[in-house]
Amino acid sequence: MDIKRRNFLKVAGITTLAGLGGTAVVGRLVASSGLAQAAGGQGAAQAGQANLNGNQTNPGVKRYGMIINLKSFRDDPTLGEKIVEACHSYNNVPDVPNPKDEIKWIWMTRYENAFHENYHLYRDEATEKQELPVLCNHCDKPPCVRVCPTKATFRNRDGVVVMDYHRCIGCRFCMAACPYGMRSFNYIEPAPYISNLNQNKPRRMRGVVEKCNFCVGRIEVGQLPACVEACGESKALVFGDLNDPDSEIRKLLRENHTILRNPSLGTLPSVFYIV
């Protein structure tokens, strides 16, 4: 079944359910399916799911996302270290030496680790050597939020998946659920491993999970996330509102072929990669 037909069937089915309000629903769904496809050239399954996601076309609601341009990281090999340092020092992420207890919000990894579904024997040299940043994808359908028994992890109205560190019980269910391995648990008291405490930001306590929060405090006051800012003019990272068709990020998505980490899982990541 081709995508159009699938979408049509979905729309038809939902319209029937929706009854009188049907026309409006069709309008929204058609608009959003077009949008989701433009937004990433994603597979049929994903476009199908995006159909059902009302947020995508609701003009009043933001959905923050990020584009990572791998070319910039090839051009400037020091960039990776810079963004990691910017994030971790701004957000008081402890530098725990023992890898078992490590905390990381953003880090550089290899293509074969981040995109193992797309990996094959005959890859080009650039891909082979490519180091790229990974961070929380702020999934539109986040499994970590679904499984949390206390709502300590939740999705903000602007699409950012954030945490309440004072509510988290440290069950680590979310770590088992995140299919990207983006969550860290404070196995050890973090305070001694934070070298320069950023007084404006809280630090976490032992026994809770943490991860990238798109620098929620900064974006609320109109600043860019720390890692994005650290890239300067290179445009290696671009942050913006995916629901605003005129935003820079949407413009880049229209103009470039982008890929997502593990799109087949239906989590609808908000972090896109230009290879």
Binding site: C148, A152, R167, I169, G170, C171, G207, V208
Partner: peptide
């Protein structure tokens, strides 16, 4: 649990 004293949160914030 990493925070055993907060165990009751499962009841206080039913999910």
């Amino acid at each position: 649990l990493g925070q055993p004293l907060r165990g009751l949160n499962v009841v206080l914030f039913p999910s």
